[in-house]
Design a protein around this nucleic acid. Structure first.
Lengths: 202, 202
DNA sequence: TATGATAGTAATCACTTACTTACTATTGAT
DNA sequence: ATCAATAGTAAGTAAGTGATTACTATCATA
């Protein structure tokens, strides 16, 4: 918890703002989060936000920066601790699900940014992040092939799409049920099928 | 193409409206499609829409009805023409991708409805549709097990999640590239991995 | 403790949005 | 051809929305 003084230095206030948006996005459609809603949720006047961000778009950009940093850090950490490429993939999957369970607004914001018509800084940030993610996955899969863990004929690009999609599927199921915890429970079963799909012959 | 008289009977006008929304959703974020944009895209005054729909929410409801009907019909047709449960799954997958390629706004609208905070009629319609879809998939998978086509230990609920998620993954990739056609091209590779994941031992 | 810089307030602005209303045009049945 | 029912228009309205502004409170430091 951040200390709740009235006046926060600019940088801290920006950080608190980002956290407030991430929290709000867990409960409502990111696109209809208003600056007024952000402000009141952090016990601030609406106009005060614009002392720290030039406009609303800048808030979204800061939020996407936060997402990119935190999500990728968690995933990288999980991958590094793994004993083999396949183990790394599994660890990344579970780390991603754990992160998304803690911050259910994140996948919504990402998807929301991606389907914007205008090309904003926030959108570009989401695009590059997911691209980087996909490339990281592809590299791991190639390593997995060399190690004999994965099917040597595997189409690693398609597998990366499926990896990300399966997370999206779990998110969708959670949205359907209105129960975020369900993701964690169902993640192992989903990953098991995926692993069987990419693994070397048994 | 619908004939373009000035005055259309109510039912026809409603149908044209739904088509207009589906078309608009292909190009922009569904949540910021305004009634004015819908109206001008069909060469109508904004106010005229409200002669056929009591409010905007009713438009969304009609659109989701259209989606549910058309998508499910396409998928059912594909499944019925297949020789075996596994073939049916593959046919459904390809039919779904084909439908989404023709109407790229559809997955965006579905996901957009699902992540709404309020529980609207349109949202409930999206929920029941996807649930029905999932159940249909589960039934097919059970049949596939009995037929010896699928892994007898398969968790069919998890597989259904993965099936829907893999479509979502392809959609996401298309959004990233800004190229809808890519979905069709990459669909077979993605499904191949999925099939390997659920199939019986080789 | 005084002071200058920084952060927050409250009111307001211009603009957009869904929806309404008083009027007009079109249509099809008699 | 007439006319009543229906569909469309044009100009509104009220309730938001992001952003601005003149003023005030708080804070760190000399």
């Amino acid at each position: 918890m951040t200390v709740q003084r009235k006046h926060l230095p600019a940088e801290e206030r920006r950080a608190v703002t980002v956290e407030a948006v991430v929290k709000l996005a867990a409960e409502q459609n990111p696109t209809d989060i208003t600056t007024a809603a952000i402000a009141t949720s952090m016990k601030l006047t609406q106009g005060a936000l614009f002392r720290h961000f030039p406009n609303k778009e800048a808030i979204w950009q800061a939020v996407m920066e936060w997402v990119a940093e935190h999500l990728m850090a968690r995933i990288e950490r999980a991958a590094r601790g793994a004993a083999s490429p396949l183990a790394a993939l599994e660890a990344m999957f579970m780390a991603h699900i754990a992160f998304v369970t803690e911050h259910p607004g994140v996948p919504r914001m990402l998807f929301g940014e991606l389907q914007r018509a205008e090309d904003t800084a926030a959108k570009r940030m989401a695009q590059t992040m997911i691209r980087r993610y996909g490339e990281r996955l592809s590299v791991l899969m190639e390593e997995g092939k060399s190690a004999g863990e994965l099917d040597p004929q595997l189409d690693s690009a398609a597998a990366a799409t499926l990896f990300i999609g399966s997370i999206q599927g779990l998110v969708m199921q959670a949205l359907l049920a209105g129960d975020t915890g369900r993701m964690r429970k169902n993640a192992p079963g989903t990953f098991a099928i995926f692993r069987r799909g990419i693994g070397s012959v048994r």
